[in-house]
């Protein structure tokens, strides 16, 4: 059951990956990369339960925090043309 859920979430990642590669706009890509990060968190939590390692849940939370950095940098660059 958990395996099926993980595979479905990973396949949903494929749809978002298509949007990230195809574009066409910057915001499509930013949102797509952010969603890929969120789905990474979900898949990590599911994998943790599939392989009986519940501490993966803590790692998933840290990934959710890391996921913000890139999005903020990208959006700041698109708004001001720099990071300053």
């Amino acid at each position: 059951m958990l395996e099926a859920a993980a595979i479905i979430v990973v396949l949903a990642m494929a749809l978002v990956l298509y949007r990230a590669i195809k574009g066409p706009m910057l915001y499509d890509r930013a949102l797509a990369v952010n969603v890929i990060g969120t789905k990474t968190v979900v898949v990590l939590a599911l994998i943790g339960f599939i392989y009986d390692r519940p501490y993966f849940l803590d790692i998933a939370l840290v990934y959710a925090l890391i996921n913000f950095i890139a999005t903020i940098a990208i959006l700041k660059y698109s708004e001001t043309g720099g990071l300053g």
């Binding site: 890509r29 890929i36 990474t40 790692i59």
Partner: peptide, 30 residues
Amino acid sequence: DLLGSVMILGAYSLLMALLWTRYNSVDVAF
């Protein structure tokens, strides 16, 4: 578009981190 390239690289790193964690190398994944 190099900005898009950078963003795809970010997604690449997240997927690689997922794979590392799945192979139990948690510190490498971090």
